[in-house]
Design a protein around this nucleic acid. Structure first.
Lengths: 177, 177
DNA sequence: GTTCTCATGTAAATCGTTACATGATTAT
DNA sequence: ATAATCATGTAACGATTTACATGAGAAC
């Protein structure tokens, strides 16, 4: 699954501009995938060339014109082919966790700050998601939204309850210097 | 944080060959980062050129020779500089979740199979981690190991309890055709 | 006998980010 | 005034993966 394919997927949920697709990546897809304008716009252009999406220009009042994309039936078939393929393993990259592995090399205050920030970030995301989940119409939307909520909450609880383990290790390492 | 830096980090925990570093990425670092030989070996060569690690060749009986890398003090200083930098946001890419978003486009049996496989995968990883966590010596190691265990367990429980939401949506979509 | 583990590497290709470029409107 | 939102794009660069290449011993 690449960004190109996911753009196609987003368009199965309704017409959208490149800008709106980016928004969806930030909101609904934040837990799942990541994409910048630099990948979305070229992907849409290529999909248009290949006849997998069509494009109409809409002029708006007091807003820049936008290009609204629709998925074509060829696009729909291709997307279905893609999502029945076996899924590849999750790919995670977490600077936060990578740094924590080396907590013993850091000043205790730096470790505490890092964890404080992560806790604040997760708490904020959870709050936003809770609002969001309430308004979901379909079971799938609720499933996805609550999935994120559950995993983030588990992380948050774990951090609060176990941060002392890391903070103790960081302190000990300093004391031993 | 890139793979180069993380190789340096792994070497702060003890000398290792490229092959052994890859192993650590698969075991301990699987939740955190991902790296292939094609990125590790060139990284080690470059770090050697730059004097951030040193390398000695060890011949073994009935095993191919190996190159064992040690971090130098220059390498240590550079690594410390790297890990005090502000961390960038997590980057997740999950084909599994991306596919589930489109559950309504899939046959119900395909959705069920996907979830079954994920549950089996998580259950297996949890079992392996439980063993692993028991033998950890430091608080940091226990923290990291239990972190993974907690998050995976939350996901597993959630999937078991809520899979019916997705399976219902997939069935409804088919019925509406 | 065939697959797995140990062991190191290279080169091409892919994929995507970052930074740049532009510009109007709206909210603080 | 200044920042944020809306809106689209390109080009250079960077990072990694994938596939290829090689080979011996061990386990099943």
């Amino acid at each position: 699954m690449d960004i190109r394919t996911l753009c196609l997927g987003v368009l199965t949920m309704g017409d959208a501009s490149g800008y709106e697709i980016k928004k969806k990546f930030e909101d609904r897809l934040a837990l799942v995938f990541h994409a910048s304008y630099g990948s979305i716009y070229p992907a849409l252009n290529k999909l248009t060339e290949e006849g997998l999406v069509s494009c109409r220009e809409e002029s708006q009042e007091k807003r820049p014109d936008k290009k609204v994309y629709s998925i074509t039936s060829a696009g729909r078939y291709l997307f279905l082919d893609e999502i029945v393929k076996p899924v590849s393993a999750d790919r995670v990259r977490s600077d936060f966790l990578a740094t924590l592995i080396f907590a013993r090399l850091l000043p205790a205050a730096a470790v505490s700050k890092l964890i404080d920030e992560r806790i604040a970030d997760r708490a904020e995301k959870i709050a936003r998601m809770r609002e969001n989940c309430a308004g979901k119409a379909t079971d799938t939307d609720r499933f996805m939204c609550n999935y994120g909520l559950t995993v983030y909450q588990a992380e948050l609880d774990y951090l609060k309850e176990n941060r002392h383990l890391l903070e103790a290790d960081a302190l000990l390492a300093r004391a031993a210097e």
